[in-house]
């Protein structure tokens, strides 16, 4: 499992890439990827191209990010999730909270 992140030069958009299993062991890296930024970005992209698996604690972490990003006003896009991962997201109705592409 690795979490890497890149932020655009104007600081407005943050992309977080999660590789491998997204579970509790990722929570420090995941939180670190946005909490250490000097300015809160407006847009967030979670790239799940190489995310093999997602557990319920990862769902909790996504909600933590959502609250940080402004709750209902947040703009978070989850993209390239595999069928398995997508299924877990949809069982919990996360489509209503995130833009899943």
């Amino acid at each position: 499992m690795t979490v890497t992140s890149t932020v655009t030069s104007d600081g407005s958009e943050l992309t977080i890439v999660i590789k491998g299993r997204f579970d509790f062991s990722a929570h420090q890296d995941f939180r670190g990827s946005y909490e250490t930024l000097p300015v809160r970005p407006d847009h967030f992209i979670i790239d799940m191209t190489d995310t093999a698996y997602l557990d319920s604690s990862a769902l909790g972490m996504l909600l933590l990010l959502r609250d940080y990003a402004g709750g209902d006003a947040s703009d978070i896009v989850i993209k390239n999730a595999s069928t398995d991962v997508r299924r877990i997201l949809s069982i919990s109705n996360f489509e209503q909270l995130f833009t899943i592409q």
């Binding site: 557990d55 909790g60 909600l63 919990s92 909270l97």
Partner: peptide, 8 residues
């Protein structure tokens, strides 16, 4: 809906 846990 917005709890950080309890979905398992």
């Amino acid at each position: 809906g917005n709890e950080y846990s309890g979905r398992g």
